[in-house]
Write a protein that binds this DNA or RNA. Structure first.
Lengths: 219, 219
DNA sequence: ACAATTCGGTTGTATTTACAACAGAAAGTG
DNA sequence: CACTTTCTGTTGTAAATACAACCGAATTGT
């Protein structure tokens, strides 16, 4: 697990801690490492969670297949991101999504009760981790709200504008790369791929933007 | 502020605390009470928050007016619910929504830094409140995800089915009341009111459900 | 290098939605 | 009780979307 210390140091959860502090937190929190091959399920709908998880290698998608087999990609998890924190409360319902590895991936699991309960050995950095966790989950809430904003747009074009504007703002440039291919982006915005492709090309023809594969430029 | 103790006792944030403990927490956390008339803004887009807020009387809507004046109701806050917690982190961006009183309302504000930092006087219930806050924000995340699920449905009908099914499940009955009128429900699901009304009536004619005003019955 | 597969763009058609406009019912007001 | 305002359902039309089907380009695997 030690080889992931540099990765962990850059996560929100362990922000502000130095190597030695993280090492002691790992044992204090009873961390466990798990690996998955590309395409494997990391979590399945219906599971009950007790662990907060950090992706330390690879890439994951949060997705859901409905009754009729339509797949929605609800989000994407990059290295260093935390997930599962919304489902670890004692009275939480079961997980309602699947989490799938889109590349070979590794995660580290932490029992939430060890995080949230001050440890008997009075580990010094515990309260900092609790604060970090709070701020991290806050930030995720904000992201959910932002995605809701894209989704609440009525037309495909408006959804695209909303998404691309935000991505440009996030990457601080009118030239940027998105983490989705066309089908994934369509799933993320819950629109039809071909209709979206069509709309993107119209927008390009109108001089609003340019793109090549996942690289975009807004005007 | 004391008259709201029974209300606070039933909130997620103060769950598990008795009256005296809540009273001491109120001063420990430096709580403040604010009142608003129906229609007044409680929070405005662009504000930076330091306070976590609990609604102790009335009703609020979280909403957003876009560029072209289209209003989306992103959510609704009932008595006892907490809000603002996603925007209080030190590096959080500004609030991106408005919060408006739909009835005369009262809120109690808590400086988040006092909650999250163990108080010097070692107030006994502090860590319980921190845990409660964590579980509350977790639950809100789950709700956001559920709303995202409704929104990710492609058609008005599917959105309605998704929303109404969940509402029935939530209220544990095929007969239930929704907290929105037609226009508000349409805004919540981001669809056109008349199209939605139309679809509801078609579904009624097909024998899927019955309704009168805000009361629904599913078959 | 070749075959197989994935990916992105295009088109036509059937379906669905948005929008505007209106009318009756319900609720609020003086 | 009139009057006004808000709410809900209805309709027709224009616009947008979903869907299926296809093709060429790019990518992958052997």
């Amino acid at each position: 697990m030690k080889k992931y210390i540099p990765t962990l140091k850059r996560t929100k959860l362990f922000s502000g801690l130095v190597d030695d502090e993280i090492i002691s937190m790992l044992s204090c929190l009873g961390a466990r490492l798990c690996s998955y091959k590309k395409g494997e399920y990391v979590l399945r709908q219906g599971e009950h969670l007790r662990d907060i998880t950090v992706l330390v290698s690879g890439n994951l998608h949060i997705q859901k297949d409905d009754y009729w087999g339509n797949r929605s990609i609800l989000g994407q998890i990059s290295v260093g991101e935390m997930f599962g924190e919304a489902y670890v409360a004692p009275e939480s319902e079961a997980l309602i999504n699947d989490v799938i590895a889109t590349e070979d991936s590794a995660i580290i699991l932490f029992d939430v009760r060890r995080i949230i309960t001050t440890c008997p050995s009075a580990c010094r950095f515990h309260s900092l981790v609790v604060q970090n966790m709070f701020f991290a989950i806050s930030e995720k809430s904000r992201k959910l709200v932002q995605k809701l904003e894209h989704m609440s747009k009525r037309s495909t074009r408006e959804k695209l504008i909303s998404y691309l504007s935000e991505e440009a703002k996030k990457q601080n440039s009118s030239v940027f790369t998105i983490p989705f291919n066309r089908q994934q982006l369509a799933d993320y915005l819950s629109v039809d791929r071909s209709a979206m492709s069509n709309e993107l090309c119209k927008m390009r023809d109108e001089g609003m933007l340019e793109f090549a594969k996942n690289n975009f430029k807004l005007f």
